Computed example of a mutant assay.
Amino acid sequence: MAVSYSGLAAFHAVAEAGSFTSAAKAKNLSQPTLSTQVKALEDAYGVRLFDRMGRQVRLTPLGQSLFVITARLFTAQDEAQALLAGTRTLQRGHLRIAADSATHVMAALAKMRANYPGLTFSLTIGNSSEVVDQIMDFVADVAITARPNSDPRIHSIKLRSDNLIAFIAADHELARHDSIPIEAFAGQDIVLRERGSITREVIENRLSMAAVKPMNLLEVQSREAVREAVAAGFGIGVVFEAEFRPDSNLKRLTLTGADFSVGEYVACRAERRRLPLVRSFFEMVQQIVEGT
């Protein structure tokens, strides 16, 4: 049995929008038309793709699996249309960026926006592992990540290097110093991001190599939470130097005794690197790297 293209398109539109009403409006179709197409797809295979809850819908487990496939399908269709229909002029279009820090992406976005004012952008922030997953799952077009990658499916270039620094509450016992060796972490409480964060990965690796054992670890889910926890006295925080913002409640400390330099990379799926929007973003990054 051949899968109905219209049924898949209707399903994808509803899954993406979260409701039949929003999907109908986005696709300029009537809601009954979409409902009929989705129901025909479900009936043809004797499955349920959505749980209906009033005007909202929720994907069933099968629907979630199908949505992963239709995302690839319709992303490829959009790419083909973009390539053939001339958005290479970049007079319009939408670029989805996933970044592990807004700090590292804004310069390239500002440059691209100035050159192509008709473009729109969306930016999501996650840890280094999450943003790579987003380009692999076709959720994002490009990723800014501190995680180097040798996967042949991924194309990447180095954007910049940054150093990790420590910071503490202004009344912390180490606040009288401007720099500390890695050995100073011994017996100290530390505050770090969740696993998947390159900041955590690097500092834990350096501590292990130096055979330094901190006391307690407080794990939090965002940079803002790290900052708040450190200011409240929960321990030593670690962050990229470019991300640290001066605060009278915090003391910045340079780290010594190990290599704390970390690269930041721009990445995309290798087969998408020649798409006009993606290619142009990489060109903006290259100009920043070269200082032009």
Results as ranks from 00 to 15, higher is better:
2 A>H: 15
4 S>W: 00
4 S>R: 04
4 S>F: 01
9 A>V: 01
18 G>C: 04
21 T>I: 12
22 S>Q: 09
24 A>V: 05
34 L>Q: 12
35 S>Y: 08
37 Q>H: 15
41 L>F: 09
41 L>V: 12
42 E>S: 03
45 Y>I: 01
47 V>Y: 01
49 L>F: 04
49 L>I: 06
51 D>T: 02
53 M>Y: 10
54 G>Y: 00
54 G>A: 02
56 Q>D: 03
57 V>Q: 08
60 T>C: 02
62 L>Y: 07
62 L>A: 11
63 G>D: 10
65 S>G: 06
69 I>K: 14
69 I>E: 15
69 I>C: 06
73 L>C: 09
74 F>Y: 15
74 F>P: 12
79 E>S: 09
83 L>V: 13
84 L>Y: 08
84 L>Q: 14
87 T>I: 15
90 L>E: 12
91 Q>K: 14
92 R>Y: 11
93 G>P: 03
94 H>E: 03
102 A>S: 14
104 H>Q: 05
107 A>V: 07
110 A>F: 09
110 A>Q: 15
112 M>P: 09
112 M>S: 05
113 R>E: 11
122 S>G: 04
123 L>D: 07
123 L>K: 08
127 N>Q: 04
129 S>H: 12
130 E>Y: 05
131 V>F: 01
133 D>F: 04
134 Q>E: 13
134 Q>G: 04
135 I>G: 06
140 A>W: 02
141 D>M: 08
141 D>H: 15
142 V>Y: 04
147 R>P: 00
149 N>C: 13
149 N>W: 02
153 R>W: 02
155 H>Q: 10
155 H>R: 10
155 H>K: 12
168 I>G: 05
174 L>F: 08
175 A>R: 11
176 R>D: 12
181 P>E: 05
187 G>C: 01
191 V>I: 09
195 R>Y: 05
196 G>K: 10
197 S>V: 02
197 S>D: 11
198 I>C: 03
201 E>V: 00
206 R>Q: 15
208 S>Y: 10
213 K>N: 10
213 K>E: 12
224 E>I: 09
225 A>Q: 15
226 V>N: 09
226 V>R: 12
227 R>L: 10
228 E>H: 10
228 E>Y: 03
235 G>A: 05
238 V>Q: 01
238 V>N: 03
239 V>I: 15
240 F>D: 11
240 F>G: 12
242 A>Q: 13
243 E>T: 08
243 E>W: 00
244 F>E: 12
247 D>K: 06
248 S>I: 07
256 T>C: 01
257 G>S: 11
257 G>I: 11
262 V>T: 05
262 V>N: 03
265 Y>E: 04
267 A>G: 02
269 R>L: 14
269 R>M: 14
270 A>P: 03
271 E>R: 15
274 R>G: 00
275 L>W: 12
277 L>R: 07
278 V>G: 06
280 S>R: 06
283 E>I: 04
284 M>W: 07
291 G>A: 10
